[in-house]
Design a protein around this nucleic acid. Structure first.
Lengths: 134, 134
DNA sequence: AAAATATTCAACCGATTAGTTGACAATTCG
DNA sequence: CGAATTGTCAACTAATCGGTTGAATATTTT
């Protein structure tokens, strides 16, 4: 399921729920970090963590539901590989808030010149922003 | 483990846990988005969401525990203000993974713009693997 | 002072979470 | 073949989650 998201839409809501939930656990974040160095077997991933293999397997379930990893079988091993794309969605969502912690972005002016009505925030305005990072 | 701690912040050790957990709910993300336009009372924040005021108040508890908002009392209202700093920590954590998805996204974009359907994108190996096989 | 308004608190509920243990399945090795 | 090795599945548990309702607490208004 290749879902392509535009940076303008902070939506893709179900996905962000899953992704942020997957990231809200230190063990899972550690696993993600470990597999940035390449595929790892489940046993290798479990070793540094003080829990059963089954527990790690369930963490992998969570990561897989969020499409953050893929598992493939090779012999008696299951190899786990990183799929970083959903992280881009998460960062896209967060990038919107960058203007609020970094004061001298040009986005801030755009925000300040727009009126802020008491309500009607719910409309998904496409804040078309091409984030130019350093 | 990228557990960064701001010196002046009374941030708890499990900071990223709390922040990502807070973000893993669409209602809370919507609340954060709404208060980017300025302070809002709890009632104002609750109105667009089909749930009780108490439920929204609990969502605010979660956001406050993650230090993503501050509440202040003014008369009979409680005003809710965004505190974006923890989002910077979250984005810092995610930024590390940028190197892993940028290449993929570029390639995906290429494939989607090409007249031929993408083939075997899943097997593309875009980052080095240090597989230690036996 | 009494009533209305705004929000939280407390208790409760069903669903989900993160972990366990033990049985099972698939693969490899002697 | 039989026995390890590797990982998942199934069932169970305690804790947490996201929601409800109703009472309690401030504050403002009448």
């Amino acid at each position: 399921m290749v879902e392509l998201r535009t940076a303008a839409s902070p939506a893709a809501p179900g996905n962000l729920d899953l992704v942020f939930h997957a990231l809200a656990d230190a063990t899972r974040r550690a696993i993600l970090h470990e597999i940035t160095h390449g595929e790892r077997s489940v046993g290798e991933l479990a070793q540094p963590h003080a829990m059963s293999l089954a527990a790690v397997s369930k963490h992998l379930d969570v990561l897989e539901r969020a499409s953050l990893i893929q598992r493939r079988r090779s012999g008696q091993h299951r190899f786990v590989r990183l799929n970083p794309r959903p992280l881009a969605a998460a960062q896209d969502w967060l990038a919107f808030y960058r203007q609020f912690w970094s004061a001298n972005l040009d986005r801030l002016q755009e925000l300040l010149e727009s009126p802020h009505p008491p309500k009607s925030v719910a409309s998904k305005r496409t804040h078309r922003r091409t984030v130019k990072e350093k």
